[in-house]
Design a protein around this nucleic acid. Structure first.
Length: 433
RNA sequence: UCCCCAGUAGCUCAGUUGGUUAGAGCAUUCGACUGUUAAUCGAAGGGUCGUAGGUUCAAGUCCUACCUGGGGAGCCA
C-alpha cells in the first residue's frame, strides 16, 4: 500500500490540491444524487462530497454499499467551503473500500449507558471525545517526561513483579517459580529511593496496582503513577517542585491541546489560573477550619472526600495539606521535629472537587527510627532488609511524591470519572475488553 | 465489606390504583430527494419485560431470594 496519503488535520494546507486520504466512515448522509461521507482518521474528521455525475455509476454504487466504520481510501480535490464543518472538504473523484463493516456497529452518536460503553470500550475508543481525552493524556505524559528531563532527572523503571513489600502487601498473588508468591507493585517508591542514592534525582513512571475494593469515580485497580524521588530534598523542596511541575504540564496542555479541550468542552479559564505557589495548609489548621464549617472530623482522622472538597472550595488552584498525624500515614514518612505527633508529608488536592492528585513526603532517614516504625506497624522486618540498607550505607535526607496520572487527566479534561482517562480501565468488576 | 439505585427491542427510555394484542425515539433494511450538518419524508422488521420462586381470577407492574451493573462510603494516587 502506498504511503502517499494525507492526514485529515493537514488538509487546510492543501487547498486546491488533489489528495488521497484514508480513514473510517463516521457518518453518512445522502440527498438524492449528492451524498456526504464524514471520514475520521484519528487526526480529525472530514466531510467528503460524492456527486453521482462526477464519480460515475461504479463509485456511486460503492457509496450506496457503505456502512458506518467501513475503512476507506478516498481521492479528491481539497476545497474551502463554508458549508463544510471545519471549512474544508474533499470533492470525491474515486474511492476504494479497504475494509467492510457490518451494519450493526453498536456505538451511535447519542447517549449510551456506561455499562454498555465499557463493554464496548475497544470501539468506544474511536469516538471523537475519547480520542481527544487520549491525546490530552499523551500530551500530559510527554510534558511530565520533558519537565523532568529538563531538570536532569533520570527516569528509572522499577519492577512490576515484587516480593511482599510496600504500603500493604499480598495483592494479586501469582506463583513465582520456587520463590513463593510474587505480587503486583503498588508503588515503585522503595526502589525509587534506592535509585535516588545512585543517580541523585530520579523518577519512575509506570502502572501500579491496588486491590482495595474501591468503587468510586477516583479509583482504578490498575493506574499509572509518576514517582519522583530526590536526594537532599526536604519536604518543602519537594512541594516547590510539585507546584512547578503541575503549572508546567497544565500550561503545556492548554497551549498544545486547544482543539481537544474545546471538543470536550473544558472551561479552560479554570486551568489558566493554575500558577505556583499553591497554598499550604497545615493539617491541624485544616481540621480546625473544617470544624467551624460543620464537619465532625477529629484531630487524628484522615480527611474524607467531603472534607477535602470543603477545603478546596475556597481556592482557584490546587492546595497542599501538610503534616498529617503519624497514625494516618505510611511507615516510611519522617517525623516532624516541630510536632512529633505528625509527619513531614503533603497531599496536593486538585480544584473543582477532583481530590488528591499527589501524595508526598520526606522519608525517614534514620535507621533506628525506621526499624521502630516498621515494628510499630506490625510489618515483617525481614522483607525490608534491603530497604534498611539505604539507611545504613550513607543515609541521606530525601523526599518524593506520587502523582496519579488518571486523576491528573480527569481534572485537566474536566471529566467526571477517571475510567475515561485511560484507554482500557481496570475496575473491580471489569477485566475485559 | 456497608448503604442507595437500576435491569423492558441493537441503543436510550415510557409503560397509570395489577386488567385486552407491551409502546416511542434512535439504529437497521427498503423507498423518495442534487448541499447535507446527529439531514428530512414514507414504510418494514425487531421483545424469554435480568433469573427463580411466590401472591392473585389476572403480574412488566406487588412480595422474597439470587444474578448483573451503576452511584457513594471507607482506603488511597
Amino acid at each position: 500500500m502506498s504511503s502517499q496519503y494525507q492526514t485529515i488535520s493537514s488538509l487546510p494546507h492543501h487547498i486546491g490540491e488533489t489528495v488521497r486520504v484514508r480513514g473510517w466512515v463516521a457518518h453518512l448522509r445522502s440527498s438524492g444524487k449528492v451524498a456526504f461521507i464524514v471520514l475520521r482518521d484519528g487526526s480529525g474528521t472530514l466531510q467528503c462530497v460524492v456527486v453521482q455525475k462526477v464519480v460515475g455509476d461504479a463509485a456511486w454504487g460503492t457509496f450506496q454499499s457503505l456502512t458506518i466504520e467501513t475503512s476507506l481510501e478516498i481521492d479528491g480535490e481539497v476545497r474551502a467551503d463554508a458549508r463544510a464543518p471545519g471549512g474544508v472538504e474533499v470533492g470525491v473523484t474515486n474511492m476504494t473500500v479497504l475494509g467492510t463493516s457490518p451494519s450493526d456497529y453498536p456505538i451511535q452518536p447519542k447517549e449510551h449507558g456506561i455499562d454498555f460503553l465499557l463493554d464496548h470500550r475497544h470501539l468506544w475508543l474511536r469516538s471523537p471525545r475519547q480520542v481527544a481525552i487520549g491525546r490530552v493524556r499523551a500530551e500530559l505524559e510527554q510534558a511530565l517526561n520533558d519537565f523532568f528531563y529538563e531538570r536532569e532527572f533520570v527516569r528509572v523503571d522499577t519492577p512490576i513483579l515484587t516480593s511482599a513489600i510496600g504500603e500493604r502487601s499480598g495483592l494479586f498473588a501469582t506463583e513465582y517459580f520456587d520463590e513463593g508468591n510474587a505480587y503486583l507493585a503498588q508503588t515503585g517508591q522503595l526502589y525509587g529511593e534506592a535509585a535516588a542514592a545512585a543517580f541523585g534525582k530520579i523518577y519512575t513512571f509506570g502502572p501500579t496496582f491496588r486491590a482495595e475494593k474501591s468503587k468510586t469515580r477516583r479509583h482504578l485497580t490498575e493506574f499509572w503513577m509518576l514517582e519522583p524521588e530526590m536526594a537532599f530534598f526536604d519536604s518543602a523542596d519537594s512541594m516547590r517542585l510539585q507546584e512547578e511541575m503541575i503549572e508546567y504540564v497544565v500550561r503545556r496542555t492548554i497551549e498544545r491541546c486547544v482543539s481537544e479541550l474545546a471538543l470536550i468542552e473544558r472551561d479552560v479559564s479554570r486551568l489558566e489560573s493554575i500558577r505556583a505557589p499553591f497554598p499550604r495548609i497545615d493539617y491541624t489548621d485544616a481540621v480546625a477550619t473544617l470544624q467551624t464549617k460543620g464537619s465532625d472530623v477529629k484531630w487524628g482522622d484522615d480527611l474524607g472526600a467531603e472534607d477535602e472538597s470543603l477545603l478546596v472550595a475556597d481556592y482557584d488552584r490546587p492546595i497542599f495539606i501538610v503534616n498529617y498525624p503519624k497514625e494516618a500515614k505510611a511507615f516510611y514518612m519522617k517525623e516532624n521535629p516541630a510536632d512529633p505527633r505528625t509527619v513531614l508529608c503533603s497531599d496536593m488536592l486538585a480544584p473543582e472537587g477532583y481530590g488528591e492528585i499527589i501524595g508526598g513526603s520526606q522519608r525517614e532517614d534514620d535507621y533506628d527510627r525506621m526499624v521502630q516504625r516498621i515494628k510499630d506497624e506490625g510489618l515483617p522486618i525481614e522483607a525490608y532488609d534491603w530497604y534498611l540498607d539505604l539507611r545504613r550505607y550513607g543515609t541521606f535526607v530525601h523526599s518524593g511524591f506520587g502523582l496519579g496520572l488518571e486523576r491528573l487527566v480527569a481534572w485537566v479534561c474536566g471529566i467526571p470519572h477517571i475510567r475515561e482517562a485511560i484507554a482500557f480501565p481496570r475496575t473491580m468488576y471489569r477485566l475485559r475488553p
